[in-house]
């Protein structure tokens, strides 16, 4: 497997303006994202997760460091607008606010928007839009008005818009943060399916721990640095380190952690409530 995104020592600061000093956000961030993987990025507010997402989409340019997208150095001097558009065709983004990213009033028109920008002939756009709507399960809403949809449905439309452009990698910038639990589940199910069935690389920025447990890999950020990087099991097993960074851990992990502190012999890398329950039962039986 090859890396679709590779970041080497990225640093970024929002430039100051007159009296206000520049705000450093990212410090020396390095990582690689394998094609087809599902990576969750965790961190509390203001730790630079969204800035990182914007760097990966080339909305912002890093001050220092090198960013490779699909093996191409996007930070070199001789990068052209064409290269940037080309990279944006590979990496798409779904934003936090479902209302602020839909352009058209009709669902299918919005899904088509990206393809229209790419100058694809109309019959092909039609085909892609239908496919994308099928993938997110919104085909029957194709002619509906976007503003009447629920938050979860709007986010699925935004995802369809990204899919219609045939992108291989989608960055979700807290796309579930403004949704109700039902909508969040809808979107998470869609994201998981895209990753498993369509082989799409997913970078999911979130602060919901239980969403992060669905990923193959979790990157934890704090104050613009990557502090942890590993499988959900590895990362959440170090609950103390996460608490130190002002983050929560999944409820199952917290429970198991407390059990362990109380002297029970339990594993920490369990996220399924059922499994967790049997692990605890086993540990209690053992202790007796």
């Amino acid at each position: 497997m090859s890396a679709i995104i590779k970041a080497e020592h990225l640093s970024f600061a929002y430039p100051g303006d007159g009296d206000t000093p520049a705000v450093p956000v990212l410090h020396d961030v390095s990582f690689e994202i394998e094609e087809g993987s599902f990576v969750a990025v965790l961190g509390h507010n203001g730790c630079g997760k969204s800035t990182l997402a914007k760097l990966l989409c080339m909305i912002l340019e890093p001050d220092e460091g090198i960013l490779y997208i699909n093996g191409k150095d996007m930070t070199s001097e001789d990068i052209t607008d064409e290269d940037i558009y080309d990279a944006r065709r590979r990496v798409g983004m779904v934003f936090q606010n479902p209302d602020n990213q839909l352009v058209a009033t009709i669902v299918e028109e919005d899904v088509a928007f990206g393809c229209e920008n790419l100058g694809i002939p109309s019959e092909k756009i039609r085909k892609r839009v239908d496919e994308a709507l099928d993938t997110v399960g919104m085909r029957k809403y194709a002619r509906h008005a976007t503003h009447r949809l629920s938050g979860g449905q709007k986010q699925r439309i935004a995802i369809a818009g990204v899919l219609a452009m045939r992108r291989k990698c989608i960055i979700f910038d807290e796309s579930t943060a403004m949704l109700d639990p039902g909508g969040r589940k809808e979107v998470m199910d869609t994201i998981c399916r895209l990753n498993r069935e369509e082989g799409i690389t997913v970078i999911h920025i979130t602060h919901y721990m239980n969403e992060a447990t669905l990923a193959d890999r979790v990157i934890v950020m704090n104050d613009g640095r990557i502090i942890m990087d590993g499988t959900p099991g590895q990362v959440f097993s170090c609950a103390d380190k996460l608490w130190e960074a002002g983050l929560d851990v999944p409820q199952t992990t917290e429970l198991l952690w407390r059990m362990k502190e109380a002297g029970y012999n339990v594993r920490l890398d369990i996220f399924d409530p059922e499994e967790c329950a049997s692990e605890i039962a086993k540990a209690i039986a053992e202790k007796r």
Partner: peptide, 27 residues
């Protein structure tokens, strides 16, 4: 204004570069 800025970013992410070279789905 905040929405406008968000939308502009989202449109840029979806490769919007103005009218030139754009096609339409529904002709």
């Amino acid at each position: 204004f905040r929405r406008a800025e968000d939308l502009a970013t989202a449109m840029e992410c979806r490769c919007y570069t103005g009218g030139a070279g754009r096609t339409r789905m529904n002709v």
